[in-house]
Design a protein around this nucleic acid. Structure first.
Lengths: 147, 147
DNA sequence: AGCCTAAATGCAAAAAACTTGCATTTATAA
DNA sequence: TTATAAATGCAAGTTTTTTGCATTTAGGCT
């Protein structure tokens, strides 16, 4: 469970203290949820580590995201979400049930030419697709869908 | 200058009033800037229409974006940006000088298979690339760049 | 095992971006 | 010109995230 790539180890290896709070936050992210807001992490952390402050949750999520120990995602709803998986990947979101699917393909690979044409040095990119998952689209079959 | 696709006409055609404030906001977006925050629109509007309230700017930007008369963009910095161009497109951003280039290709076209494999009904998507533009990357030649 | 110190936490308060309620003003159409 | 629904302005409220500062604590050292 605590292999060499365990986020906790990664933190410790960089000289950060492995506090009760940090362990609990990492447990929540790796164990349970997939893409949680700071608020959600805070709530879920409470059950295993009673009185952790929301500010501490924010500070640690930010720290770990900067260190690349966890991933930060923006679903465009005005709050940041965090996930255990830190490697580069993209998301497919269901607008109805909130389901999130991780995409393993990367669109940048297919559009490098049009991008390099502008002589940019590419540092990063974001891609997300939203729609209705198999189940939700079934339940909404008569709906035309818009956009 | 005021053709049939003029945003003002589009508003009027839908029964919205063409107020002094709305005209000024549209002028700012179509004329001057490319991708402005509400705050920036507000500032620029002041020069041609003295005391427009920031709230009015927000309300109108939201309205027009919903009507599809202007476009709303999210560059991931925690504030919405607005642009005159409403048709679907993507962006290339310079992390140093803030330059924005409009991309005319759409990556979704190249990754439909991996996406439909998950049996989603796709409604929309977002793609943005960030890096350093030709000028900025030249100025930073000795910098390795990170990420 | 106990101590030391920098690092981490908690609390309260602030910042930033955006929204809402309500009274007043105004664009449009009769 | 007037009536009226829509739009605006103002003040106050939300929501999410950050900051300052006093207190606590993890982890190294003895």
């Amino acid at each position: 469970m605590a292999d060499n790539k365990d986020p906790g180890r990664l933190l410790a290896a960089r000289g950060y203290k492995l506090t009760r709070q940090r362990k609990a936050i990492l447990n929540v992210l790796t164990g349970n949820g997939q893409h949680l807001t700071a608020e959600e992490v805070h709530q879920q952390v409470q059950s295993q580590c009673p009185a952790v402050n929301l500010v501490t949750v924010y500070r640690n999520l930010n720290l770990m995201a900067e260190l690349g120990v966890i991933g930060r995602v923006d679903f465009g709803d005005g709050r940041a979400r965090f996930e255990a998986r830190a490697e580069h990947h993209h998301h497919l979101l269901c607008l109805k049930c909130g389901r999130v699917v991780e995409l393993n393909i990367c669109p940048l690979d297919y559009v490098t030419e049009p991008v390099t044409e502008h002589r940019f040095r590419v540092i990063g990119h974001r891609f997300k697709v939203f729609g209705y998952c198999a189940e939700c689209k079934y339940l909404m079959e008569d709906d035309t869908g818009g956009i």
